[in-house]
């Protein structure tokens, strides 16, 4: 029995909106508090975006050729690397490797043994979601703390928009990847199961969303970060979930696969152009770290603000406050 399009849209919204919000807010929380060790020399630049784009475009083709055990091996290395880079500064080496071992080990065990029931699927997704969200938060911070500017993120998003549309609608590599990953350990998506339906959003999409919010926040401050978050939620989470109600995205396997970047990329790029027009030059990482957008150890006003998510009567007026305040 197939669920209705409306049911699927609502279910998808329940997955995409919280996961997009969670990855962006967690990434921002991390950016304000944790410093990832960076190499002696090196800033993320435009050519790195091209390299990243080429890698992200070709690696899926490579994945599709691998036997299952080898693919799982690659995913273990990828997740272990990203988690260790991102959380060693927080937990220290011993704890982080123990946590990675437990998280990945449990995921592999559940992926192989727990998918016989709906509850098993749900538990698997829940555990998998934690790994994917943590990974996306870590890598997005690695790049933004490495100097990646909003300009590069915007170009990256627009390139991915074309890529996503092409490889979903014309040459269905994305569809093949979803099929390849679904129901196996370390699925690089955040998802959930409800009865017979699975809804998921890819780690690549979440990674770009986090990058966009972080780089906007780093470049232009809190107001820009909120605008970016609103764009992410609207065009990266809501739009992909509801457009199947109007546009037929059902593929040959009867799956609904929406190229989320095709919706998000242009919106992100336009947002970048508007932010640049309004704010001018982006802040450097040095300027960002010197600003009060960073939470410093000890009693700090911004830290107190952050600890209280709802602040109905701010004592200090925010001159750059935006109408959309989903970040708070």
């Amino acid at each position: 029995m197939q669920s209705s399009a409306l049911h699927l849209a609502v279910f998808t919204l329940c997955v995409t909106v919280p996961s997009a919000l969670l990855v962006c807010l967690a990434a921002k929380f991390y950016l304000r508090r944790v410093r990832i060790e960076r190499p002696a020399i090196g800033v993320f630049n435009g050519r790195d975006v091209l390299v990243l784009f080429v890698l992200l475009s070709t690696i899926p083709l490579f994945y599709l050729q691998l036997p299952r055990w080898l693919l799982t091996g690659f995913l273990v290395i990828t997740f272990a690397s990203s988690l260790s880079i991102g959380y060693r500064p927080v937990l220290g080496s011993t704890k982080v490797w123990a946590a990675i071992g437990i998280l990945l080990g449990l995921n592999i065990w559940m992926g192989n043994n727990a998918l016989g029931t709906v509850l098993g699927w749900q538990l698997f997704w829940l555990e998998n979601d934690i790994i994917v969200l943590l990974g996306a938060v870590a890598v997005a911070n690695l790049y933004v703390q490495g100097g990646m500017k909003l300009r590069y993120v915007a170009w990256f998003a627009i390139l991915l928009a074309g890529y996503d549309a092409f490889f979903t609608e014309v040459f269905p590599v994305t569809n093949a990847l979803v099929e390849e990953f679904l129901g196996y350990p370390l699925d690089p998506s955040v998802g959930m199961r409800w009865h017979l339906d699975n809804a998921a959003i890819g780690i690549g999409d979440l990674f770009v969303y986090a990058l966009f919010v972080l780089s906007a926040f780093k470049a232009y401050g809190r107001a820009a970060g909120r605008i970016a978050l609103a764009v992410v939620v609207t065009f990266g989470a809501i739009a992909p979930a509801v457009v199947p109600l109007a546009i037929n995205y059902i593929d040959a396997r009867n799956d609904t696969l929406v190229p989320a970047q095709a919706w998000f990329g242009p919106a992100a790029f336009i947002t970048y152009l508007l932010l640049r027009r309004r704010n001018g030059k982006e802040r450097t990482m040095q300027e960002f770290l010197a600003s009060d957008d960073v939470v410093r150890p000890g009693p700090d006003r911004t830290a107190i603000e952050d600890a209280a998510p709802v602040s109905p009567a701010p004592t200090h007026p925010q001159p750059d406050r935006q109408p959309v305040d989903v970040n708070r």
């Binding site: 960076r38 190499p39 002696a40 020399i41 090196g42 800033v43 100097g147 450097t284 990482m285 040095q286």
Partner: peptide, 20 residues
């Protein structure tokens, strides 16, 4: 040139600059 870009962005080189 990379080092100059690094200083412009971060104000100082990253870890282990002395090794270089």
């Amino acid at each position: 040139a990379d080092a100059l870009a690094t200083l412009q962005e971060f104000g100082e080189p990253g870890a282990d600059a002395r090794v270089l």
